Amino acid sequence: MSALAFPHTEQARRIGDDERARILADSGFGTYFTDFMAHATWTADAGWDEGEVVPYGPIQLSPASAVLHYAQEIFEGLKAFRHADGSVWTFRPERNAERMQASARRLALPELATDAFLTSLTALVAADEPWVPAPTTEESLYLRPFMFASEEFLGVRASRRVEYYVIASPAGAYFPRGVQPLVVWISDEYSRAGAGGTGAAKCGGNYASSLLGKAEALEHGADEVLFLDSETRTNIDELSGMNVFAITADGRLLTPSITGSILEGITRESVLALAADRGLERVEQRLAMSDVLEQVSSGEITEMFACGTAAVINPIGEFRALGGSWTVGDGGSGKTTLALRQEITDIQYGRIPDRHGWMTRLV
């Protein structure tokens, strides 16, 4: 078995300097992609090969590839940030590596060692360094590691051949309106994941199951959908791709406990750490939707927000459901919510000291 090194042979870039500059001036989110990608292959007989950094482009798959029929696939998401001195850093990548390993175990895929995961990120960002934007607000280079079953066979078992890739995309704000209070639709029909399922894994199927709920939310004029637990349809689970928090008037920070159907968000984990620094009492427990709405109506809950890698932290200003609507606080962006968001982004962009040791330099 080879050590994963992801070597890169110097090759011509597919996008010229002028076109890249045009893209970076208005990149949106997840629309454009860089010059290169990292790739490695695993087989049951030989393990992982050395890997390589190759030109970004289409992947050739057999119509019988296992992923197309049995959805054996996982992914991660993290960002590369340009600091004022020109260096490029990323945020808590070891936790992404560990979460990808946990997802791999749940989906019966091979685990990629943490050092190999970090090497793949470093190799790709070194090759694509001109694509890391200098931030005028919160621009970054979004990194998407993913792994899927590529063995050509039809049969329900774990694939004996697996591909690992990392692609990159310059990114601006996740929500087109920027950091504005979200309107969130509470779905009473659809569930994101069930007990004993893949809710805690970062796999495509969980996101596919959220799409109808997200469409339903848009039909009701909402930005996002909130899913409830599949067993009782009473407890808060998470949004289509973000964890949920509430802040109370007496200084408690409430969030649903990790039960196996909720993704262990790295931003979620970071928020809990920063909240402790601020003296907030952290409460992780089952949160009944009815109780939360009562506390919103009474003013006991003063702020709510959603968080994830792409959006970082975004305030929630209103909930809607078939039974009515509920405004959180004054419907605006809460002071503590914005302060937590500012602290995380200041750490990520190197504007304040990284006292938790969360940042890793890539270039």
Rank of each mutant, 00 (worst) to 15 (best):
M1F: 14
S2N: 13
L4I: 15
T9V: 14
T9C: 11
T9M: 02
R20N: 11
A21S: 15
R22W: 09
Y32M: 00
F33A: 05
H39E: 15
W42L: 07
D49M: 08
E50W: 03
G51M: 13
E52V: 11
V53N: 06
V53P: 05
V54D: 04
I59L: 14
S62R: 00
H69F: 02
H69S: 10
H69Q: 09
H69Y: 14
Y70P: 00
E76A: 12
K79R: 08
A97C: 03
M100V: 05
A104N: 07
R106F: 12
L107Q: 10
P110C: 06
F117W: 12
L118E: 13
T119C: 06
T122Q: 15
A123D: 13
L124H: 01
L124K: 00
A126V: 09
D128R: 08
E129F: 03
T137Q: 15
E138S: 10
L141N: 05
P145F: 05
M147V: 05
S150N: 12
E152S: 09
L154I: 15
L154G: 09
G155D: 15
A158C: 04
E163T: 10
P170W: 11
A171D: 12
V179I: 15
V183Q: 12
I186Q: 08
I186P: 01
S187C: 08
E189D: 09
Y190V: 02
G194D: 11
A195F: 12
G196R: 04
T198M: 09
G199V: 11
A215D: 13
E219S: 04
D223G: 08
V225F: 10
L226P: 01
I236T: 10
D237F: 00
F245Q: 04
I247H: 00
I247W: 01
I258H: 01
T259G: 15
G260N: 13
L263G: 02
L263K: 00
I266L: 11
R268A: 06
E269N: 07
V271K: 00
D277A: 13
V283Q: 04
R286V: 06
L287W: 03
A288F: 11
E294S: 03
E294V: 00
S298H: 02
T302V: 15
E303P: 00
T309H: 02
V312A: 12
S325M: 14
S333A: 15
T336C: 03
T337D: 06
I344T: 07
H356P: 00
M359E: 09
T360Q: 13
V363P: 05
